Simulated assay, not measured.
Amino acid sequence: MKPRAFVPEKLDLAVFAREGASLEGEWPAAALERLADAAAPEAPAKGWPALRWSLLGEIRQPKGGKPQTWLQVRAQAQVSLTCQRCLKPVEEHLDIDRWIRFVDTEAEAAELDADSDDDVLAMPRHLDARELVEDELLLALPLVPRHEECPEPLAHADDEVPADEGGAERPNPFAALAALKRGGSA
């Protein structure tokens, strides 16, 4: 019997897990639009290396319980985000490896997810693995991307403020306000 061909964008997860099947491949980073939207303007996703991914389906039989459908999702990507200190592109390596349990209903998923450390989702009719991988990569993005050490020195608040072109120092706006408050003129 010829092995079944699975399509990641329309995956029959129940059959995939029952057969203990696996899939792997690469996608251009720009094909994941929501991830590409996170790109630094100077380093768009079309210039990123392709992301690598793999899926492994599995049925687990707990003692005294019904069979459980599990999916292992692995992905690696190199993305360029905007450093929140210097506002220059910073490369981030994303590496995910998660097991997700699938159950029959949304209500069951919500109940089990609240009581468990495992990721639990409702079983879809057809799973779009590309969308699932993208979701996991988005969750792996750093909240505040930044360089370990920024490539250019940062300006500090206590640095000297440059004088106006005429060479005169700018007046302190609070001094003028204090003068007005005392009844004088600025």
Rank of each mutant, 00 (worst) to 15 (best):
Ala5Glu: 13
Glu9Asp: 15
Lys10Ile: 12
Leu11Ala: 03
Asp12His: 07
Val15Tyr: 10
Phe16Thr: 01
Ala17Ile: 02
Ala29Met: 02
Ala30Cys: 06
Asp37Leu: 09
Ala38Asn: 04
Ala38Pro: 03
Ala39His: 00
Pro41Leu: 07
Pro41Arg: 03
Gly47Phe: 04
Gly47Thr: 10
Pro49Ser: 03
Leu51Thr: 02
Arg52Gly: 09
Trp53Ile: 02
Leu56Gln: 14
Glu58Arg: 12
Ile59Met: 12
Gln61Met: 12
Pro62Glu: 05
Thr69Cys: 14
Leu71Gly: 07
Arg74Pro: 07
Ala75Ser: 01
Val79Trp: 00
Ser80Phe: 07
Cys83Leu: 11
Gln84Arg: 10
Lys88Glu: 13
Glu91Ile: 06
Asp97Ser: 11
Ile100Leu: 14
Val103Cys: 05
Asp104Arg: 15
Ala107Val: 15
Glu108Arg: 06
Glu111Arg: 14
Asp113Leu: 02
Asp115Gly: 12
Ser116Val: 00
Ser116Ile: 02
Asp117Lys: 02
His126Gln: 14
Glu131Phe: 13
Glu131Tyr: 09
Leu132Glu: 01
Glu136Ala: 09
Leu138Ala: 08
Leu138Asp: 05
Leu143Pro: 11
Leu143Ile: 15
Val144Gln: 14
Arg146Pro: 03
Cys150Gln: 01
Pro151Leu: 02
Ala155Gln: 03
Ala155Val: 07
His156Asp: 08
Asp158Glu: 14
Asp158Gln: 10
Asp164Gln: 04
Glu165Trp: 11
Gly166Met: 12
Pro173Gly: 01
Ala179Asn: 11
Leu180Trp: 08
Ser185His: 12
